[in-house]
Simulated assay, not measured.
Amino acid sequence: MNPLHDRDAPLITLLRVGRVFAPEALDATDILIADGRIAALGRDLAIPDGWPVRFIHAPELTAVPAFIDQHVHVTGGGGEGGCGTRCPEIAAHEIASMGIGTVVGVLGTDSISRSPADLLAKVRGIRAEGIAAYMYTGAYRVPPPTLTGDVQRDLAWIPEVIGLGELAISDHRSSQPSHEEIARVVSDVRVGAMLADKRGICHFHLGDGKRGLEPLRRLLEDTEIPADQVIPTHVNRHRALLEEAADYALRFDASIDVTAFDEAGDDGLSGFDAVSRLLERGVPVERITMSSDCNGSLPEFDAHGAYLGMRVARNTALIADWQRLVHENVLPLESALGLVAGNVARVLGLHVHKGRLAVGFDADIALLDHDLQPQQTFVAGKCVYRTG
């Protein structure tokens, strides 16, 4: 049986594991799942005779909240070197095999051959295969491309749209938006999100340009926009930018997103190194998230901005960097889980039903082995990945 099509399973599942981290360690080994949500947690939970229950015994595995990846080029990124450099779409099994239960789809440089409509179709296709999926409207450029012709309408009327992104700043590929343009777009997102009862974040792509985070600092200094409305990503692109990001997070009590690069380059930092440095600088772990940028392009340019070549990002580095943070005792498991689950859910406004293992929350669960490698992934109580 293909786990991604596990739709004929009973409505009730009793999952019995070795340990449960919610993210804090619980005195529980049983998770009762009903109608896609967690109904109970405990030990030796009893089920009445005759109930249609599926029992899953995995005493050697640890249950944690399924991971949330807030930056995925689900339709493929790239295109900076012409049509032959468009990156491929991601498959649902590639997502689930990393313990990821929720993704947020994003457009990047190319919003011409790929559109918000393409992105929405792919997001709905991923949902049909059992993965929780959302999207940002917009792309690198301003004015942002939208589904309805208006950012506020996209947020108000399209359930899958939870914000705007990835709007590019401090990058030669951006549309070089002015302070006024950035403020207008962010305020439009804020109002549209309020009308839709969503968090409505603006997910900002940071390039390696000399302005760094200055556009966002000015936004927060000169307007009434709250810091949790804007999330800068790729802040570990180079060391000076990471130091600036640490100052930004501390000054504004803001959240920042670290990218788990496959190869960090000469001046960049891996996700592991970046999180370690931010913690050393005193940035609270609750203000740090990690994402993969997977299926996006990793282009190389010369000093004049001419295209040299590219690679395709994968989500394997996200899990590897996260595991290393725990294995090397940079963070305990319960704190590290925030980087890829609870913190992300809060940033995205999904924290009322995702990012924790608790009664009433979505039954999005990753089962990890002793090495913290995902062995099974459940989304809304359905098994979407299983090894072997």
Rank of each mutant, 00 (worst) to 15 (best):
A66F: 06
Q70Y: 07
H71C: 11
V72C: 11
H73K: 08
V74H: 03
V74E: 02
T75W: 00
T75Y: 00
G76A: 04
G79E: 00
E80F: 01
G82D: 07
G82P: 02
C83I: 07
C83H: 06
G84F: 02
G84K: 04
R86D: 01
R86A: 07
C87F: 01
P88R: 02
P88L: 10
E89V: 11
E89W: 00
I90H: 01
A91S: 10
A91H: 08
H93V: 10
I95W: 05
A96C: 15
A96I: 03
S97M: 13
M98C: 14
M98F: 06
G99N: 14
G99M: 13
G99V: 13
G99C: 12
I100M: 02
I100S: 01
I100E: 01
I100T: 13
G101K: 05
G101R: 00
T102F: 02
V103A: 05
V104E: 10
V104G: 05
G105L: 02
L107H: 05
L107T: 08
I112S: 05
I112T: 14
I112D: 07
S113D: 08
S113G: 01
S113K: 01
P116T: 06
P116A: 11
A117Q: 11
A117M: 10
D118R: 03
D118T: 12
L120K: 06
R127N: 15
G130F: 08
G130T: 08
G130K: 08
I131T: 13
A132R: 12
A133R: 00
Y134F: 14
Y134N: 12
M135W: 04
Y136T: 12
Y136R: 08
T137M: 09
G138L: 07
R141N: 14
R141D: 15
V142N: 11
P143W: 10
